[in-house]
Design a protein around this nucleic acid. Structure first.
Lengths: 166, 166
DNA sequence: TGAGAAGTAGACAGATTTGTCTACTTCTTT
DNA sequence: AAAGAAGTAGACAAATCTGTCTACTTCTCA
């Protein structure tokens, strides 16, 4: 997961995965049918890690103002490598992977979509599905922050976004 | 450019570029030192196309409300394939490419960053650099819209975002 | 303790990658 | 018209990719 996340799927060969993990090739192909299946498994793992981390961050949110504040705080910590379980920040693993796997029929692409919908659902749920439109906008802001932090190498974007709270 | 944008850089081999363009391999390597140099050229071309299209869309913007409205309208048209010069929507070419080329030292990565900064600067400039904080937030919303439209296969996200104007 | 499951190391096949090079053709320009 | 530049088609080299297979070792558990 770390290798794929840090370098991209196509940039990492199976042999690098083997060397880095110390696993034999036969063993790997015993557990996973193909590289794609392995990638899918890393996406599932990351999905659970991420949702679990984020829902922890939003645990005691009551109002949409609190949600915004907590979300931006969480993103800022992630972006600045303060969240151990998420590893070194290199943008969103799902956005990055969807960029490489664009086929709508590919299970990899579908999982990326499902992840994003789950994140959006988590935000809505944290306010008991009140104020859906505001949450939708907040979700978009969050996506913009993650994307900008990565592509622009802008580590302070979440902090700045938190300042001009609407 | 079309091939790389639609399928990703690593997914497209030089031979596919040759077949699709009808150019001989020798000719291509006469004009471009390497595949990376070709990719860089496509990014430059896309950058100019995109900035030129977007600045046209924001031409007569006066207020920050107008900027928001016009930006979301433009994004909606792009996402729904109404903008011929941008081709079939497959997310942001620069976000997608940065996902594949993460090395900070790579010229490809640097160009992706420069493009985003140019887009942000264009937004600010369209309001004569007044209200920078609001424009920054708007930029983030735009990035979120583009990313969400692609990853979630959500063609109506820009239209919905335009509805709940803050 | 002994047998079967599961792991290791890595050779190998077959496909695919980028980039070079040769031999030939066409275009351009004086 | 003639010459040099630039294009074409594609063979080829060298590297790299995924996935299979063999031969051997280690672990697990009855």
């Amino acid at each position: 997961m770390e290798l794929f996340y840090q370098h991209g799927i196509h940039a990492i060969g199976i042999n690098e995965v083997l060397k880095s993990s110390g696993i034999a090739k036969k063993t790997l192909y015993n557990h996973f049918e193909s590289k794609d299946a392995l990638v899918l498994a890393t996406l599932e793992q990351r999905h659970h890690q991420f949702i679990s981390w984020l829902s922890g961050c939003l645990e005691d949110v009551q109002t949409s103002e609190m949600l915004e504040k907590q979300l931006f705080l969480a993103l800022d910590q992630w972006i600045n490598n303060k969240v151990e379980v998420l590893g070194e920040f290199r943008g969103c693993y799902f956005i990055n992977t969807a960029a490489e796997f664009g086929e709508l029929t590919s299970p990899i692409n579908q999982l990326c979509q499902r992840h994003k919908l789950a994140v959006k659902a988590l935000l809505k749920q944290s306010l008991n599905d009140a104020d859906d439109a505001a949450v939708e906008r907040l979700f978009l802001l969050g996506e913009g922050i993650i994307s900008t932090a990565y592509t622009c190498h802008d580590a302070s974007v979440a902090k700045r976004a938190a300042e001009f709270t609407s």
